[in-house]
Amino acid sequence: MEPVVGALQEQALKRKERLKALRSRQLQGNVPEDGEPDRKRVLEEEEGVEERHRELRLRNYTPEDEELKERQVPKAKPASVEEKVKEQLDAATPKPVIEEVDLVNLAPRKPDWDLKRDVAKKLEKLEKRTQKAIAELIRERLKGSEEELAGAVGAVKEGEGDSD
């Protein structure tokens, strides 16, 4: 804490010295009545008084003097708010997206579509086995029908031989 107190005391002493110097200058008459330091006053004198004042522009005042009428700024016309509002409303309204959307993709899928997808491979194997089983059954029936045909043909031949 002592360094902080020491720094504050130093600052206080510097302020006192500056105030004493200011008082002594005032007593000697070096400082003008307006309280501006000499440096600032010298800079203003170098720049000149003309640059110090800005050009007078009259926006809300209508002067009667011809010389002042030249400095009057022309009346500004307010911008059309209606056009800006229309542009904002047009930008805010959503444009139809029907052109981009494919109706086939929007159609809801059947509830069991994922089951069919997962079972498709197993169904292919079963389909092959089923076709083989059907082919075997047909062959067995054909063998059975051949035997019946052979028996029928044999019976017909026997019947023909009896009539001779």
Rank of each mutant, 00 (worst) to 15 (best):
G48R: 01
N60G: 04
E55N: 06
K69D: 01
L58V: 03
R52D: 15
G48Q: 01
V42L: 12
R54P: 02
R59L: 09
R59E: 04
R57D: 01
Y61W: 13
L58Y: 01
E66G: 10
K40M: 10
H53V: 07
E47D: 12
E47N: 07
R41F: 00
G48E: 00
H53Q: 08
L43S: 04
R41L: 09
E50D: 08
R59M: 09
L43C: 08
E67Y: 15
D65K: 12
R41V: 12
H53F: 15
L56C: 02
K69H: 04
L68P: 01
E64S: 12
K69A: 03
E70R: 15
E45M: 07
R59K: 11
L58N: 01
E47F: 00
R52T: 15
L43Q: 05
E55F: 13
R52K: 12
K40W: 02
L58M: 03
E51V: 08
R41M: 09
E51I: 06
D65W: 15
V49I: 14
V42H: 10
E50G: 09
K40N: 13
R59W: 07
R41A: 12
G48D: 02
Y61V: 05
R52Y: 15
V49F: 11
R57W: 12
E55T: 06
H53G: 06
P63H: 05
L56R: 03
E46L: 09
R39E: 07
E51Y: 05
P63C: 01
Y61N: 02
E66Y: 15
E44A: 10
L43H: 03
R59T: 06
L43T: 09
L68H: 07
E45Y: 02
E64G: 11
E46D: 13
E50F: 10
E64K: 11
E46S: 08
E44D: 14
E51L: 05
V42C: 09
R41G: 07
L56Q: 02
E66M: 15
G48W: 00
E67C: 08
V42F: 03
L56G: 01
E51A: 07
L43Y: 00
E50T: 08
E50Y: 12
L58K: 01
E45A: 11
R39F: 07
T62K: 13
E45V: 14
E50R: 12
E55C: 03
E64Y: 14
E67A: 10
E66V: 13
E45K: 06
D65N: 11
V42G: 10
T62W: 10
L56D: 04
K69I: 06
E51G: 06
K69V: 07
R57Q: 08
R52N: 10
G48T: 02
E44H: 02
E66N: 14
E46P: 01
E70F: 06
H53M: 11
H53N: 09
N60K: 05
R52Q: 13
E46H: 03
E50S: 08
